[in-house]
Every structure is written in structure tokens, then in C-alpha cells.
């Protein structure tokens, strides 16, 4: 039993790593069990997981927020001119 516990024990650093890893790739069965066990005993990593998810959601929305049509379009006349002047044969 002790051996099994040792096998399944994760540090908080490793647990947070698995929390991030999971957003990119599937965890192995062992990793899933390790993470679930760890969270059941660790409030800090449970809070971390929620906050990490919240940050993911915020970043995702923030980066995709400006859709092409509803953005408050900025004007850049100087840029326009530079581009037009750099088009060959113009």
C-alpha cells in the first residue's frame, strides 16, 4: 500500500504541470489518477486548476475578441501611403 501511495504521489509542481499539459494533450491513465488523487488532498492545486482555467478562458476570448467587423477600426493613413508607394509599377 505504501508503495502504491508513493507511486501515485505528485508534488504540487508536478500537479500544476499536468494541469497545463492536459490542455494540450491527453494525459495517460496513470497521470489522470495521480492528478485526481493529488487534488483530492490539496486545496491549493484545486484552486490553481480553477484559476488556470479562468485565465485560459480570458486569454482565449481576449485574443479572439476582435472580430473583423465589429472592431473599432483604427486609421493608419501613413501605413496606407507607405504600402501604396511600395507596390511596384505604381
Amino acid at each position: 500500500m505504501k508503495k502504491l501511495m508513493y507511486y501515485l504521489m505528485l508534488s504540487c509542481k508536478k500537479a500544476t504541470e499536468l494541469i497545463e499539459k492536459r490542455t494540450l494533450v491527453k494525459l495517460s491513465f496513470k497521470e489522470k489518477v495521480q492528478l485526481r488523487m493529488h487534488k483530492s488532498m490539496c486545496d491549493a492545486c484545486t484552486a490553481y486548476e480553477m484559476q488556470s482555467g479562468k485565465i485560459d478562458e480570458l486569454l482565449h476570448k481576449h485574443i479572439h475578441n476582435v472580430s473583423v467587423d465589429n472592431a473599432a477600426t483604427l486609421n493608419n493613413e501613413a501605413l496606407k501611403e507607405t504600402i501604396i508607394n511600395n507596390i511596384p509599377n505604381n
Binding site: 476582435v66 473583423v68 483604427l74 496606407k80 504600402i83
Partner: peptide, 15 residues
């Protein structure tokens, strides 16, 4: 350039 460059610039700046 006239039609789309402002929109594209806004988009690129945001990203």
C-alpha cells in the same frame, strides 16, 4: 489597401 488596410492593421495590432 484603401478598403481593407485599416481593418487589417487593427487586427494585427490586437494580435
Amino acid at each position: 489597401v484603401d478598403l481593407y488596410s485599416d481593418k487589417m492593421y487593427t487586427w494585427a495590432l490586437h494580435k
